[in-house]
C-alpha cells in the first residue's frame, strides 16, 4: 500500500509543472511593473513617486533580511539543539 502511494505522481513531482509555475511567476512580475504606467499615484512621501519603488524596496529589503539573518544573526545566536539541557 505504502509502495503504491510512493509511486503515485503528484503535481510538482513533474519538473515541467515547477517550471511552468516559475514562468507564470516571472511573467506576473513584468506585468506588475508594466501596470505602473497606467496608474495615478497619490503618495504620502516623495520616494513613493519613483518608478517601481515598492518592487525594489521589497526585493532589496528581503535580500538584506536574509543575508543579515544568515551571516550576522545566526553566528551570534545559534547553539546546539541541547544547549539548554546541559
Amino acid at each position: 500500500m505504502a509502495k503504491k502511494q510512493n509511486e503515485k505522481k503528484y503535481l510538482f513531482d513533474n519538473p515541467r509543472n515547477v517550471k511552468r509555475l516559475l514562468g507564470i511567476f516571472y511573467a506576473s512580475l513584468v506585468v506588475l511593473l508594466g501596470l505602473e504606467f497606467f496608474i495615478h499615484k497619490h503618495p504620502h512621501f516623495a520616494w513613493e513617486k519613483w518608478f517601481g519603488f515598492y518592487a525594489i524596496y521589497g526585493l532589496v529589503s528581503c535580500i538584506l533580511l536574509v543575508l543579515i539573518a544568515k551571516y550576522v544573526l545566526r553566528p551570534l545566536v545559534m547553539r546546539d539543539e541541547d544547549y539548554y539541557d546541559e
Partner: peptide, 20 residues
C-alpha cells in the same frame, strides 16, 4: 484603490522573487 493594490502586489511579488 488601484494604486494601493498594485503597490502591495509589487512589494509582495518582489519579496517572493527575493526568496526564489
Amino acid at each position: 484603490t488601484f494604486a494601493h493594490v498594485l503597490a502591495q502586489r509589487q512589494l509582495l511579488f518582489f519579496s517572493a522573487l527575493a526568496f526564489t
